[in-house]
Design a protein around this nucleic acid. Structure first.
Length: 262
DNA sequence: ATGGTAGATAGTCTA
């Protein structure tokens, strides 16, 4: 089965791009971030018509996450535990049943955290601590688990075209990278780095300053796998060409194939 | 160093 993540930067503006990409990449499960709409505004019929089930956790204006799945949902839960009073829609978790048992997928939109000297950076670090606690509990289930989404974390210098430009940014500060490593150290595998140590693999290019034509990108969209998922990892891809389409998102889809029959 | 672009929205805020 193929599991993908894509920060779509407004689902309503990019229905056509989504449909083209779904037909091309044929993912079984897709986690979407920055849908930028409320639940009732999500264009679910467009995807249901292609055979996808739709789960949405939206909000007005910003953020918002969703999951599309060819397999029916056994469970859908929204919101990251531990956020008393956190009203930002950034986390959705589903369980689907395959021919070979359940697969659990967490879709997340981790806070950006800039500016670093504002309340946004401590919010990011707190959110990462909450994520670590939640994932630790889920790993105890010993299931195939995929934790994927826009992490807003550049894990290593190789994950940026110009790492020196990011040294004071919330996406690359030592504390941010350390929190990401803590997550990995629970026992998760970065799917892309399990299959390639090549530099120049990016998932985001800013709309500004010609970042895309200059290939000034960063890798911040990740799929992290539990041991039971990692043992079945067959392939990983970044659909980079999508960035050159008309009206593109500033992110491109990243996917992983698991040797689990859907 | 600065400012550059895009999206939701109707002021600016977020990225």
């Amino acid at each position: 089965m193929r599991i993908a993540t894509w920060n779509i930067n407004s689902i309503r503006l990019r229905v056509d791009n989504m449909i083209t990409w779904l037909n091309e990449t044929r993912p079984d499960v897709v986690c979407l971030q920055e849908i930028k709409c409320q639940d009732e505004q999500f264009p679910r019929e467009a995807f249901e018509g292609l055979g996808y089930n739709v789960a949405v956790h939206g909000q007005k204006g910003f953020n918002g996450v969703a999951v599309l799945s060819r397999l029916p949902f056994d469970e859908v839960t929204t919101g990251l535990p531990g956020g008393d009073g956190d009203v930002q829609s950034r986390f959705i978790e589903v369980v689907v049943s395959t021919a070979e048992g359940v697969v659990r997928v967490c879709g997340l939109y981790l806070p950006n955290g800039n500016p670093v000297d504002s309340e946004k950076y401590p919010y990011k670090l707190d959110w990462m601590a909450r994520l670590k606690a939640h994932v630790a509990g889920r790993l105890a289930f010993e299931e195939p688990l995929v934790v994927c989404g826009d992490f807003n974390v550049i894990p290593e210098p190789e994950d940026a075209a110009h790492p020196e430009a990011w040294v004071n940014d919330a996406l690359f500060l030592p504390q941010t990278r350390a929190a990401f490593r803590e997550l990995l150290n629970l026992g998760l595998t970065d799917a892309l780095r399990a299959t390639s140590d090549a530099p120049g693999l990016y998932s985001f290019w800013d709309y500004q300053a010609g970042a895309w034509p200059k290939n000034n990108g960063i890798r911040i969209d990740h799929l992290l796998l539990s041991p039971q998922a990692s043992d079945r990892l067959a392939a990983v891809g970044i659909d980079k060409h999508v960035r050159s389409w008309e009206k593109p998102s500033d992110h491109v889809p990243v996917w992983a194939d698991l040797a689990i029959r859907a």
